[in-house]
């Protein structure tokens, strides 16, 4: 198990290195006249040149990258070109908000989709068909459309929730819950649809396995056969789909945060992209890369826990 974990971790680090290298080279290679962009059209040639010097833009790309990397390894990701705030600080404070949403969504969709998937697989008939139709709709309709719909119905018309804004847990747990409910619902629906379909399919598959018949022939209770044995074996494929959904969720969160005016990574990314604030964009790429690698590692470990063949090979 230790070896397995180390191997996955190593692969993750290599992946992260590759992502950051490619992102850095691409972002800076075609950066254009950044100094001019920051200072505006009214600035003189001299100040522009001075700014470029200050930002180290005159140095060749590779040494600049090596510098950036060694700083980054020490936790220093530079400063924003526009606000001069340190990148690391700006991102970590916002990342926690985004992660709250994402982790909440993953947990809720895992629970709901297991319940729905098992229900559909065991009941079949109209329950199955209804869940299938809802899954197709949930999978097809983009999360931000659902978010818009939720804002209109539950916030503007019914007035049950504040349409926008975010309240920190430390300020008011009830307020926090209210502010994340609609965003998490909007994000969960697509993930639930995809994962529930997979759970349903793999539970049906697992139920047809020979060993299910053998367990039954030994007199093991039906609930134990389903919830202990079938579900555990169906868990691997479902987990794989959930891991894929997670990567997609990071993207969906950016837009949903914008709709609900939640101060996460989303609005920051959109703003820095429009401005061309490359240190921040780079920071976002690294942050999401780290999150993806860590979460994939967690999923891999869960996969290893579920499947002894993975763990022991």
């Amino acid at each position: 198990m230790v070896q397995f974990t180390l191997r996955r971790l190593g692969a993750g680090v290599v992946l992260l290195f590759a992502i950051t290298t490619i992102a850095y080279l691409l972002l800076y290679l075609s950066g254009g006249d950044i100094a001019r962009q920051i200072l505006g059209q009214t600035a003189t040639e001299e100040t522009v040149a001075k700014k470029a010097e200050e930002l180290g833009l005159n140095e060749p790309l590779i040494p600049r990258y090596v510098n950036w990397l060694s700083d980054a390894l020490h936790g220093d990701f530079g400063r924003s070109w526009f606000s001069s705030q340190p990148v690391a600080e700006t991102i970590t404070s916002r990342l926690s908000v985004t992660l709250t949403l994402v982790v909440g969504t993953v947990l809720i969709s895992a629970i709901v989709s297991i319940a729905l998937g098992v229900w559909a697989a065991r009941k079949r008939g109209w329950v199955d068909r209804l869940i299938q139709v809802l899954s197709i709709l949930g999978f097809a309709i983009p999360s931000f459309l659902i978010a818009i719909l939720l804002v209109n119905v539950f916030a503007l018309n019914l007035g049950w929730f504040q349409p926008t804004g975010y309240i920190r847990w430390s300020a008011s747990p009830a307020g926090w819950l209210e502010s994340v409910t609609l965003p998490i619902i909007a994000l969960s629906i697509g993930a639930v649809a995809a994962v529930a379909q997979q759970v349903r399919g793999s539970v049906i598959d697992a139920q047809r396995q020979d060993w299910v018949r053998t367990l039954r022939s030994r007199g093991v209770r039906e609930n134990k056969v389903i919830y202990k044995h079938v579900l555990r074996n169906a868990g691997g494929p479902a987990l794989a789909v959930l891991a894929l959904q997670f990567v997609g969720l990071l993207g969906g969160t950016l837009i949903v945060e914008q709709i609900f005016a939640i101060p996460g990574i989303g609005p920051l990314t959109i703003q820095s992209t429009t401005q061309g604030d490359i240190p921040i964009v780079m920071g976002v790429v690294v942050a999401t890369g780290v999150v993806v690698v860590v979460v994939n590692l967690v999923f891999d470990l869960l996969q290893g826990f579920l499947n002894p063949k993975v763990r022991l090979s």
């Binding site: 993207g251 992209t273 993806v292």
Partner: peptide, 17 residues
Amino acid sequence: LVMALPGLVVLLAARAV
């Protein structure tokens, strides 16, 4: 590698370029 990248983040980063 590609599947580990959130599509929207890449597109936003690309837009900056």
